[in-house]
């Protein structure tokens, strides 16, 4: 059963990995992905970001994505933590922790969760730039990244 958290507060990568490893010796691989707020977007400097989400649906969408990953790979643990609210460049946005007996499943599952999250979890980014604040456009590359798992 995956750990899903949607929160305004920051998270601690080390603490989350420790929680996955605690009390067990059967895990062979832990892969983590951390997404950060960049200081550039659309060719412009970004001074701040606001992350909006759809409470209720967000948690359901992340749980669904995690369940698909767990059905697809032999995972021993899977954590997905995503922040919302006011963020600054350098801040952490999202964390995925995937644990498996072998590395390939852990790498693939973490990658799959991120690709699906990008197109299926109801989050929207608004960046503050010197020209004012603007909503970030969805990227076609993200649709393509999701599609590759459907053909796989």
């Amino acid at each position: 059963m995956a750990v899903i958290r949607v929160q305004a507060e920051d998270f601690d990568l080390g603490r989350e990995v420790d929680a996955v490893r605690a009390g067990r010796t059967d895990i062979g691989a832990v892969v983590t992905f951390t997404g950060l707020v960049r200081d550039m977007g659309g060719g412009q400097p970004v001074s701040a970001m606001e992350l909006e989400h759809y409470p209720g649906m967000t948690e359901a969408a992340l749980s669904q994505i995690a369940a698909e990953a767990e059905a697809r790979w032999p995972l021993q643990a899977l954590s997905v933590i995503h922040r919302y609210g006011a963020l600054n460049p350098g801040d952490q946005i999202v964390l995925v922790v995937a644990a498996s007996p072998h590395r390939a499943a852990a790498f693939d599952a973490a990658s799959f969760v991120m690709d699906y999250l990008k197109t299926r979890a109801p989050f929207w980014k608004k960046e503050t730039t010197p020209d004012g604040a603007r909503w970030v456009d969805a990227r076609e590359e993200d649709d393509a990244a999701e599609a590759r798992w459907r053909d796989a």
Binding site: G35, L51, H53, Y54, H82, I93, V94, M114, L117, K118, T119, R120, A121, P122, F123, W124, K125, W135, V136, D137, A138
Partner: peptide
């Protein structure tokens, strides 16, 4: 109703 998602 909402625009395409841009999380992650």
């Amino acid at each position: 109703f909402f625009p395409p998602m841009t999380g992650g």
